[in-house]
C-alpha cells in the first residue's frame, strides 16, 4: 500500500509523519495512520481460510437477496452429493434457526448464527461457526450469508469462493443496481429458471448486466425445483473441491 494515500500504487516520494501545530494555544499533533479499517476482519478471514485449507475443505460464501433460494439450493446439493462429498453448513440469519433445521433434517451438521441487528456475517462470527463443525469429517463448508444484497459484500468471511444468487422474480437489472455485490462474485447462479415461462425476465440481458460489472465471472442458470442446470453446479463444486487439495 502507498504510504501517502493508502492506495495500492507503488510508494511515491513524499514526506509524511507528524505535523505539529497549535490551535488557540493548545498543542495539537496530526498522526498519519494509513490502516484499513476492516483490517482485523481481513486478518481473521485469512485465518479462517487457513483453517479450511488445513482440513482440505472448500468453503463457499452464498450471498443473495432474501428468498433467492440459498437454502433450497443447499438442500438439493446435499441430496445430490450424499455418499460422495461430505458437507457442513454455517447459517447466518437475523432471527430463528429455521434454515439450520432444514439443513440438519438432511443429516448434515449445521451451525446457526443469529446476528440480531447485524445484516451480514463477518469473519469473527464465521470463526465461531468453524469450531462448532466436525472439520475432520468434511469436504465442503457452505456459509449461507444473511439475505441482503448490500452489506455482506463488504466483509471477507474467509471462504474460497463467493457465490451470488440472482433469482428470476427479482428482475434482470439487479446486477446494475447492486454492482458491488455482483462484482464480488466468483460465480453467479441465476436461480428459479423454472419460472421463466411466467415472468418477463430476459436471461441474456441478465448475463450481459452481470458481465458489465464483473466481466470474468462464471454464470450458471439453474432450478433447484426441476433440477435443470444442477448437474453443472455439481460438476463445478466437485472440481473446485479437488483443486483445494
Amino acid at each position: 500500500m502507498c504510504r501517502e494515500c493508502g492506495c495500492s500504487l507503488p510508494q511515491k516520494k513524499h514526506h509524511h509523519g507528524e505535523k505539529n501545530s497549535s490551535i488557540s494555544g493548545r498543542k495539537t499533533v496530526e498522526v498519519e495512520v494509513l490502516a484499513k479499517v476492516l483490517d482485523a476482519n481481513d486478518k481473521q478471514a485469512n485465518s479462517n481460510r487457513e483453517h479450511f485449507q488445513e482440513h482440505g475443505i472448500l468453503a463457499l460464501n452464498l450471498m443473495s437477496s432474501p428468498g433467492a433460494g440459498k437454502t433450497t439450493l443447499l438442500e438439493r446439493t446435499i441430496e445430490t452429493l450424499k455418499g460422495s462429498i461430505r458437507i457442513g453448513v454455517i447459517e447466518g440469519d437475523l432471527e430463528t434457526d429455521r434454515d439450520s433445521q432444514r439443513i440438519r433434517a438432511k443429516d448434515v451438521p449445521a451451525y446457526q448464527i443469529t446476528t440480531g441487528q447485524a445484516c451480514h456475517l463477518d469473519a469473527f462470527m464465521v470463526h465461531k461457526g468453524i469450531h462448532q463443525l466436525p472439520l475432520e469429517e468434511l469436504d465442503i463448508v457452505f456459509i449461507e450469508n444473511v439475505g441482503n444484497l448490500v452489506c455482506p459484500a463488504s466483509y471477507d468471511v474467509g471462504a474460497h469462493t463467493n457465490v451470488v444468487l440472482l433469482s428470476i422474480p427479482e428482475g434482470e437489472d439487479k446486477p446494475l443496481k447492486y454492482p458491488i455485490m455482483f462484482h464480488s462474485a466468483d460465480i453467479v447462479l441465476i436461480t428459479k429458471v423454472d419460472l421463466l415461462p411466467y415472468i418477463d425476465f430476459d436471461i441474456e440481458d441478465a448475463k450481459r448486466n452481470i458481465k458489465k460489472v464483473n466481466p470474468k465471472v462464471d454464470i450458471i442458470p439453474l432450478s433447484a425445483k426441476t433440477g435443470e442446470g444442477m448437474d453443472r453446479w455439481i460438476r463445478y463444486l466437485t472440481l473446485k473441491r479437488e483443486l483445494v487439495e
Binding site: C5, G6, C7, S8, L9, N20, R26, K27, T28, V29, E30, V31, E32, V33, L34, A35, K36, V37, L38, P215, K216
Partner: peptide, 20 residues
C-alpha cells in the same frame, strides 16, 4: 477486461489530529 484495481476497494483511516 484484464484490469488491475489500484484503488477504491477499501476504507482506510488516513490520519488523526489530536491534542497532544
Amino acid at each position: 477486461h484484464q484490469l488491475d484495481i489500484l484503488d477504491g476497494k477499501d476504507m482506510v483511516l488516513k490520519s488523526i489530529q489530536m491534542e497532544a
